[in-house]
């Protein structure tokens, strides 16, 4: 086995470990986020029958709508709690993300060392996340405002143009959000790499400097940044659509246990597929950051 193959295998095993780490953390946090919703469904008594909650998924949705009618107050409260939990969990998930980046950057280090580093970069990751949230909110708000401003001008236009214009504008907003997300990942990678190198300059290890560096990477290699993140975004969407398409074809009369196994398998494969492509992009983000640093 030559050195190239060994390096490749080491990288692959690190990538697999990073992927598994992200999947496990997302699954555990997902269980936490979804728990209030499950409790609300159980509280509605709609799953207390001999067929459990399979009745909610019957063709025609007679009992699913009954759940929405009877359980609306609980479900609304549960949804609010779940969204709050999702926000907290998204923040917590920054630690496994830092660990995953660390695994991709420096394979073979002790877990304790990685964990310490991940916790050290956490405030920076959090600051970057807050900036991203604000920027992405603005990027989504802008098309809505633009659509509203264009409404009078489009009032006499073809109705297809009238209904498609806001969709296209929101699509552009989402595209810009995805682009900014890519910058954010490069900034995170920069932050982690600078932490690993233990730069003496504290300002150089800060979130602002990392974001400035990410912008520099984008200015220098815009096409490479966008091309590298493209499979990750498209892969995530593809996994989601494939799972939906597959489950659409399942027999609605299938026994509950089989239906459950099939749905769980398809959904988790979709999540793993998306995470796999994301890990590949994170490795590219580390490369981009290192090359330009």
């Amino acid at each position: 086995m030559n050195d190239g193959t060994t390096t490749r295998l080491t990288w692959l095993s690190s990538a697999a470990a990073a992927g598994m780490l992200l999947w496990i953390s997302r699954t555990l946090l997902g269980l936490l986020v979804s728990y209030p919703i499950v409790l609300a469904i159980r509280a509605s008594a709609m799953s207390n029958g001999p067929d459990g909650d399979a009745v909610l998924f019957q063709p025609g949705s007679l009992l699913l709508l009954e759940l929405l009618r009877i359980g609306a107050p609980w479900l609304a409260s549960a949804l609010r709690v779940a969204l709050l939990l999702a926000l907290l969990c998204a923040i917590s998930e920054l630690v496994p993300l830092a660990l995953a980046l660390d695994l991709l950057r420096l394979p073979g280090r002790p877990l304790l060392e990685r964990t310490r580093r991940a916790l050290r970069v956490f405030p920076g990751f959090l600051a970057l996340g807050a900036i991203a949230l604000l920027v992405q909110a603005a990027l989504l708000l802008a098309p809505s405002l633009l659509s509203a401003a264009l409404k009078p001008a489009l009032s006499s236009a073809d109705e297809r143009l009238r209904s498609l214009a806001p969709i296209v504008l929101i699509g552009l907003g989402l595209f810009a959000c995805a682009g900014f997300g890519a910058l954010l990942d490069i900034a995170r990678a920069t932050l982690l790499q600078r932490e690993q190198r233990e730069l003496p300059d504290r300002a150089g290890r800060g979130a602002r400097a990392a974001l400035a560096h990410a912008l520099l990477c984008f200015r220098r290699q815009p096409f490479r940044v966008l091309a590298s993140v493209y499979p990750s975004i498209a892969g995530g969407l593809l996994g989601f659509l494939c799972a939906a398409w597959l489950l659409l074809r399942q027999d609605p009369m299938m026994p509950t246990a089989r239906a459950l196994a099939l749905a769980f398998g398809a959904h988790q494969l979709a999540v793993l597929f998306a995470i796999g492509w994301r890990v590949r992009w994170l490795a590219a983000a580390l490369e981009l950051s290192a090359e330009n640093d």
Partner: peptide, 16 residues
């Protein structure tokens, strides 16, 4: 009455 199908769907939605 643990609502396994709902739990699975809710987990997937939360992961997304």
């Amino acid at each position: 009455s643990s609502a396994p199908l709902s739990r699975e769907r809710a987990l997937y939605a939360a992961q997304l």
